[in-house]
Structure formats: C-alpha cells, structure tokens
Design a protein around this nucleic acid. Structure first.
Length: 274
DNA sequence: AGGTCGACCTGGCAGC
DNA sequence: TGCTGCCAGGTCGACC
C-alpha cells in the first residue's frame, strides 16, 4: 500500500477538494470491499454526510463528517482514492469499487485491484483496534531517539522489521524502510538491541528526512500508486536502493543486494551499510 | 511477549 | 500463444 508519504499526499489534496462537501449519492460497484457492513447500511450511513475534515494516522486516511462519524480508508497494497471535478467525466473500470458523488457534481472513486483495502465507518475513533495499538507519527515529538533507544533495548528483531512495525512508529512500509536504512548507513539485518546511540540518532534523522522529502515529491510510484488526481509520485526518481537489485550503489558502486526478511524484500548495500 | 509465517486477492511478468 | 510460478507498497491471526 501506499506508505506515509503517499497517504499524506492524498490527504492534503483531498482536504482541498472535498472539505465541506456533502455526499448526495453512493455507488457500490463491488460490495466485496465492504467488510462487516451491508451495502444498504453503509450507504445509509454515508448519504447526506458533510465532510468536516480529512486527516491521516499512519497509512490510513480518515474522512470525518460533521455528524462525528468517521470513514477510515486503509488503502493497503493497491487501494486508490481518485477525485474528479465532474462526475460526468468519471471513468469506472473493473477496479473501481465505490463512487461517492458530492452535491457539486464532483466525485471520489475508491479503486482496489487486490481487494485488500478496507473502508470502515465508526462513530468513535477509539473503537478501532489498530488506532489503539499504533505507535507515534514520525514527525511528532513522541518519536525521538530516547524513546527509540528504550524500545530497541529489549528487541531482538532485525531493525528493518521493527521499522515496519506500526506499533513502534506509524507509516513506514517496505520501500521507505530500505531507503531510511540506506540513508543512515545501517545494515537492515542488524538486531535492534545492538544499535549504538549514535546509530539510533542517525536512524531517527534519516526517518524524518526521507519521509519529508518523499512527501515533498508526492510519494513513490513503484507499481500501482497514484495520487488523488491519478498522477504518479516523483520520489521514484530519488529512490536509492529499493528495487535496485544488482545495480550499482550510488555511493560506492558495489552491487545492491536483495534479501528476504519476515517474508518481505529488503534492498541494501553491503559495503555502505554496517 | 515478541517474532515469523501464511492467508487474504488480482494481475503483470519471466521462463518454458 | 498459453501455461506456471513468482512477485507486489499491508495487515491480521495463528503459531512457536
């Protein structure tokens, strides 16, 4: 799924586009996308709602309505939220699962090739288990070297796995975990508790730096990711290791290697990352 | 408790 | 061309 920078890009754009709009119609093209909620009930709860805010927590977009109801959109691997000014121009394909129509004739499609995504309606954000468990946002003061150090002390998992653990820090996925570790010159296989203070500080700096830069470039389009206008993210041009197996390290020219950790691909430079 | 693995789905691509 | 197997940005529950 889109990771933090992609979701934040979507959030910022949607905030400009759908704030204060009311939902006048809802088209459910594929009801498999609704987990644990019947189409009729989902529709009834959405109709007439007025968008009061668009926020983000980790990799989830939270669309809040004036009625205090919240729509949580977890895009997972292939979910997309595509906005269009004029729904008459709307192009629905086999991956379009839902279309929200607004009072001004604009619309918002939820597309999802692999159907992993989730749309959940709640009256209270506290109801959601994943929001209770999730760790601090990387840009919040709660995420800092001292707190990281305290967590690392007792953790035996490789640092790459911990970076991707949403309960440790929110929003980092497979692409940015590799990029952050390359930027901080830390080997992804290193066990968390073995990191020195200077390395933890470096990791913290790189996390903030890479994620901010990726937001600035509107995210990374590896395969499926598109922003809410249907455009690709430009950070793909600044990716240094992810997906670059056997290509030269941009620092030392050594070949980038690919390994598998916890079932996910990791890319790194054996020479630069100690 | 913490860590890892498989399942959930569809589609693109390489190799035969 | 068409088949097979593998891989893909995430998360959860089951298991060790």
């Amino acid at each position: 799924m889109p990771e933090l920078p992609e979701v934040e890009t979507i959030r910022r754009d949607l905030e400009k586009r759908i704030l204060s709009k009311s939902i006048t119609s809802l088209l459910i093209h594929d009801q498999r996308i609704l987990h644990g909620c019947k189409p009729a009930s989902f529709k009834a709860k959405c109709l007439g709602q007025i968008v009061a805010g668009v926020s983000r927590r980790g990799k989830a977009v939270i669309i809040s309505f004036q009625s205090q109801t919240h729509l949580i959109v977890q895009l997972m691997m292939t979910g997309q939220l595509i906005y269009l000014d004029d729904h008459q121009q709307n192009k629905i394909d086999k991956h379009t699962k839902l279309t929200f129509l607004f009072h001004d004739n604009s619309c918002l499609n939820y597309n999802d090739q692999r159907l992993f995504g989730r749309l959940t309606l709640v009256n209270n954000l506290e109801e959601l288990k994943f929001l209770k468990m999730i760790g601090p946002e990387p840009f919040q003061p709660e995420f800092n070297p001292a707190a990281m150090k305290a967590t690392f002390k007792s953790r035996k998992a490789p640092i790459k796995s911990l970076l991707m653990n949403q309960n440790f820090v929110a929003g980092i996925g497979n692409i940015y975990a590799s990029e952050i570790l390359f930027d901080s010159r830390i080997n992804p296989r290193r066990l968390s508790f073995t990191l020195k203070n200077s390395e933890i500080e470096s990791l913290h700096r790189s996390t903030v730096k890479i994620l901010k830069e990726a937001i600035q470039y509107r995210g990374t389009s590896m395969r499926n990711y598109l922003d809410s206008s249907g455009a690709k993210g430009e950070f793909i041009n600044r990716i240094k290791v992810y997906g670059r197996e056997n290509e030269a390290c941009l620092i030392c020219r050594t070949r980038v290697v690919k390994i598998v950790q916890s079932g996910r691909s990791t890319f790194y430079c054996k020479r630069c990352q100690k």
